[in-house]
């Protein structure tokens, strides 16, 4: 899985450079997030602007990260959702679980 990670003080942005987040690569995202949590980095923004397609396991990996960040008194927020990807969050009501922002700037300002 290709990701780029940047640090802005106590906040990490993780940008997925993949067109799909599915059962093939969602475990890698989970592992990447766990690595960050173990390093004590618990305030995370995931930029999904390159992701054109997400399936149930991709959503599951994000929920896993969200729960892990929350249990460590941090937060996991999302930004850059394409229209079809966003509709999957709405269909599963996950748009009520995650804080979702248009871009990284808005997400950074929310912490």
């Amino acid at each position: 899985m290709i990701v780029s990670i940047e640090e802005y003080g106590h906040i990490i942005t993780l940008t997925l450079r993949e067109e799909r987040l599915d059962a093939h690569n969602s475990n890698e995202l989970k592992a990447q997030l766990l690595n960050l949590f173990e390093e004590g980095k618990v305030n995370i923004i995931i930029d999904l602007s390159s992701v054109r397609f997400i399936d149930s396991s991709g959503l599951g990996a994000l929920v896993s990260g969200f729960k892990n960040a929350s249990s460590r008194d941090g937060g996991l927020k999302l930004c850059g959702l394409q229209a079809q990807v966003k509709s999957m969050f709405e269909l599963t009501r996950l748009h009520r679980v995650f804080e979702i922002f248009p871009g990284t700037e808005e997400a950074l300002a929310s912490f």
């Binding site: 149930s56 959503l59 599951g60 929920v63 896993s64 729960k67």
Partner: peptide
């Protein structure tokens, strides 16, 4: 039906929906 915080259980839901 998967609760919003569940990590699994949405695949068959998508297919049925």
């Amino acid at each position: 039906k998967a609760a919003p915080e569940d990590e699994h259980g949405r695949g068959i839901f998508f297919i049925h929906t």
